[in-house]
Design a protein around this nucleic acid. Structure first.
Length: 486
RNA sequence: GGUCCCUUCGUCUAGCGGUCUAGGACGUCGCCCUUUCACGGCGAAAACACGGGUUCGAUUCCCGUAGGGAUCACCA
């Protein structure tokens, strides 16, 4: 079957190689995660290479977004970041070495000519491949531009023992002679990756399975170089399936192909939740659902990665996030929602607000699955009086037992100790006095105190907000209800 | 269309020839807890794409069919 791969190298080096033409999307984040985990699991290096050879589409902001995203996810990068464009000279050198050694050749076919060739192949229903028309020619028109193409083997086949896909064989006849160096002297992606991976001593190429077909061509290039420069050998490959949208189609913006910044800022997710979700997407460890970074490093293996594309499920992501939210440190969550509250409140968070948030957080975080909902649910705590009362709460107030608010105001004002248990005891005794269930007392009070029909434990909220504020809010509700009377 | 890859509940998955009356999670529904909403607990419905083999025995192995995906640039 021709070329095969060498045994597993001792020292592991993986790399994440995004092209900076947009944000770091969720699929890229998963590829980065797998590379990161694999490197750490083997005590190896995780490197970053920015594939910026497409000068027209590569941007500085995109590079910043990628770095920002990786930082947020806390994937520490080893060594210097490699910028591919800066290595164009080295790439061209390799192409010329190949040319000199007879492993590559000049092709003078014009783009128009190639297009015509493909058109003819399309019409004849033949596979569309470069036909090798300049492969053996030497009658070069020296004043015309040419590209350098790899003189790939035509017989036999190549087998890649992919760490995820298993052995995959392709006949060399299926592959054509790819362009290495463009007519303007710049390297193509195919050349650049191979040279960079070699020069960076990458041992394991873990990437999306959209690159699987490329791997065969890249292997041909590596084998050609192996005969010229010592030390060239094929890396191990692992092509992981792409993530699909909820409808099974390619992931689009509509269902989650967003930058990780959107997951952080717009959706209010925690990085550890995104990481855990991404890890479990296409990979599993028994029945384990929540896996720490340390466990992931201990357990992760390429052989456990599924071979079929997984669908992206936002509901589950939210649920996983809710789990991590409940686990998260209260102070951290207060810090995370504060900016969101500032926007909603149109004022800054002061020390008193901070204290209220900190004391409420343990209860608040049980009721939210993301930072946005968490901030929303904390909003009522910090609002200045009179707080807005929503429709459901209005209804509760309207249905309140006669004289409840006035009674409650008096009882609470007279309370010796302002604590949750004392407040609850007072409310229970009021219910007895009025001969109603506790709920008929608590619900209208909740409406008055929180402006909503649902909230964290009423008496905890009251204890945290303090007597003055609560009495004030009850007064406001009474005023409000008086205004509602016909 | 050629080539390559894939196929367990709606979704993510466990399963690596008998332990499967197919397990877990999200979602859905019901019950419990309870001052509301959550959290938490308990429970229910829900899958081995289809057809052939191989085997004493297939969800697990092989081959077809169907369906899905990837890729076929002087883009990465």
């Amino acid at each position: 079957m021709g070329a095969s791969q060498t045994a597993l190298p001792q020292r592991v080096v993986t790399r994440f190689a995004p092209s900076p033409t947009g944000f770091l999307h969720i699929g890229g984040a998963r590829t980065a995660l797998f590379n990161y985990l694999f490197a750490r699991a083997h005590g190896g290096e995780f490197r970053l290479r920015i594939e910026d050879t497409d000068r027209a589409r590569s941007t500085e902001p995109a590079i910043a977004a990628i770095l920002d995203g990786l930082g947020w996810l806390d994937f520490d990068i080893d060594g210097d970041i490699v910028y591919q464009f800066a290595r164009a000279g080295r790439h061209a050198d390799v192409a010329h070495q190949l040319l000199a050694a007879g492993h590559a050749y000049r092709c003078y076919a014009t783009p128009a000519e190639l297009e015509a060739m493909r058109e003819a192949q399309r019409a004849a229903r033949l596979p569309m491949r470069y036909d090798g028309r300049w492969r053996d020619r030497t009658d070069w028109p020296n004043d015309l531009p040419y590209v350098i193409r790899l003189k790939a083997p035509r017989d036999g086949g190549v087998t890649i023992v992919d760490l995820v896909q298993g052995p995959v064989t392709v006949a060399n006849a299926e592959l054509d002679d790819m362009v290495l160096l463009r007519s303007d002297g710049t390297p193509t992606y195919m050349l650049a990756v191979v040279v960079d991976d070699h020069d960076m001593a990458v041992t394991h190429v873990i990437r999306g399975d959209d690159h699987l077909n490329n791997a065969f061509r890249q292997l041909a290039l590596i084998h050609a170089m192996a005969g010229i420069e010592p030390g060239w050998q094929a890396p191990a490959y692992a092509h992981i399936p792409l993530i699909h949208g909820a409808d099974g189609a390619k992931l689009s913006k509509r269902h989650g192909a967003l930058g990780v910044d959107a997951y952080r800022d717009d959706m209010g997710l925690l990085p550890e939740a995104v990481e855990n979700y991404l890890l479990r997407l296409g990979w599993g460890h028994g029945d384990d659902e929540f896996i720490t970074r340390a466990e992931a490093i201990g357990w992760f293996g390429l052989d456990g990665v599924g071979r079929s594309p997984a669908r992206f499920d936002l509901k589950k992501l939210q649920s996983v996030n809710g789990h991590y939210l409940r686990l998260a440190d209260d102070a951290r969550l207060v810090a995370l929602i504060s900016p969101r509250l500032v926007t909603g409140l149109a004022r800054n968070i002061d020390a008193a607000d901070h204290d209220i948030l900190q004391r409420s957080m343990a209860e608040l975080k049980k009721r939210a699955n993301n930072l946005n909902d968490l901030a929303d649910s904390a909003h009522f705590l910090l609002r200045s009086r009179p707080i807005p009362v929503d429709a459901a709460a209005m209804k509760l107030l309207a249905l309140a037992p006669q004289g409840l608010l006035a009674l409650a105001r008096a009882e609470f004002a007279a309370l010796a100790l302002w604590s949750a248990p004392a407040l609850e005891a007072a409310a229970r005794s009021m219910a007895d006095t009025l001969a109603v269930k506790l709920g008929q007392v608590a619900q209208p009070l909740r409406a008055a105190v929180t402006g909503a029909a649902q909230s964290p434990g009423l008496f905890d909220v009251m204890a945290i907000l303090g007597r003055d504020e609560i009495l004030g809010r009850i007064d406001d509700a009474q005023t409000l209800m008086e205004g509602q009377l016909p």
